[in-house]
Every structure is written in C-alpha cells, then in structure tokens.
C-alpha cells in the first residue's frame, strides 16, 4: 500500500524480514529505532557528521541517518545487535570491553559497525588517504594505527576513547582478540 507520503516496505534486519508501513521521510535510522525496536544505532547528529548511527548495508558501512528507509528495501541491514554471534560478543566487541574502548558508550555501536566494515574494506585491499602506495597492483597496505585512525575518522567520540578504540581494532585484526 502506498499513498503520497507513506508506503509499505520490507526491511531485512539482522536476518529477520519485517514489513512496515513507513513515512517516506523516515530514515533507516528512525525505522530501526522507532519501528523495529533496534535502539543500538544511535542518533548523535542526524546529519551524517558523527557516525553514531553507522550500520552495515549489504556488508558496507553507511550512516543510517542519511539513508532513507525506503531506499534500504531489499538490502541486508546489520546493526550492532547482530555483531555478536550466538549471543556471545564478537572478538571486536570483547576487545572494546577489554581495552576500555568507550566511556559513555553512545558512539560505540557506530564505532563497532564502522570498525567491522573498515576491516572488511581493508581486507579487500581498499586504500585510504594515508596509504602510501596507491598503484593499482600494490598489495593491501599494512593495517597500522595511522590507517585505522584515518579510516575510522567518520566516527566521533567526545569522551576521547580513540586510543583505546584503535588498540582494540588492531588487536582484533591481529587475531589476538579471540582469547580472553
């Protein structure tokens, strides 16, 4: 059913399909939070400037506040709630706890989704603005602190947990974050 300002869409969120009638103006963030009860993604600015609403859309990180819900129809949405497999926090999440990669925790769902997306981008060989060798046949850049900082700069943290976040991500990437 569709009228001038609203319509029914299907959203695939964390492996579950939901059918909802939404205002066409409704962002994916508001649909997740207000319609589907996924309050993990946070609204820090609603303008794509802080990254607290970051989710994965078909595995790629997006700011859900700048993504209309109707435009996410058909895509697989992954929020922070689904980063944990089988109810146990993922290595990245455990590393954030262990290294104290957050304080107030409000930016954390976005930092985590962004980090998961970023690690996949890096593994796929994507360069960043600080990557030294941008030639087409260059090997993937080593994932060091400078690369992580550059690639995570869309996610603001006012508590200043950045150094611990970087450490948690690097630790996870090195595969040492599995055991506790």
């Amino acid at each position: 059913m569709t009228d001038g300002t609203s319509g029914t869409i299907r959203l695939h969120v964390n492996g579950v399909t939901h059918e909802r009638h939404v205002d066409h103006r409704r962002t994916l963030l508001d649909a997740l939070r207000e319609d589907l009860g996924h309050t993990g993604p946070k609204k820090g600015c609603d303008r794509g400037q802080c990254g607290a609403c970051t989710v994965l859309l078909d595995g790629r990180r997006v700011v859900s506040c700048l993504t209309l819900a109707v435009a996410a129809e058909g895509a697989a949405v992954t929020t922070v709630e689904a980063l944990a497999g089988d109810g146990e926090p993922a290595p990245l999440q455990r590393a954030f706890v262990r290294f104290d990669g957050f304080q107030c925790g409000f930016c954390t769902p976005g930092q985590l989704c962004s980090a998961a997306g970023m690690l996949a981008e890096h593994a796929a060989g994507w360069p960043s603005a600080v990557t030294a060798d941008l030639s087409p046949d260059a090997p993937p850049p080593p994932l060091d602190a400078a690369e992580v900082r550059e690639r995570m700069s869309g996610n603001l943290c006012r508590c200043g947990a950045y150094p611990s976040i970087v450490r948690a991500i690097l630790d996870t990437a090195a595969g040492e974050g599995v055991a506790e």
């Binding site: 922070v80 709630e81 944990a84 926090p89 455990r94 954030f96 957050f102 925790g105 985590l112």
Partner: peptide, 8 residues
Amino acid sequence: GRDKVTGA
C-alpha cells in the same frame, strides 16, 4: 561493558 558493545 557488555550492554554497551551489544547495543543493549
């Protein structure tokens, strides 16, 4: 910590 990293 766990609540904050799982969105709970």
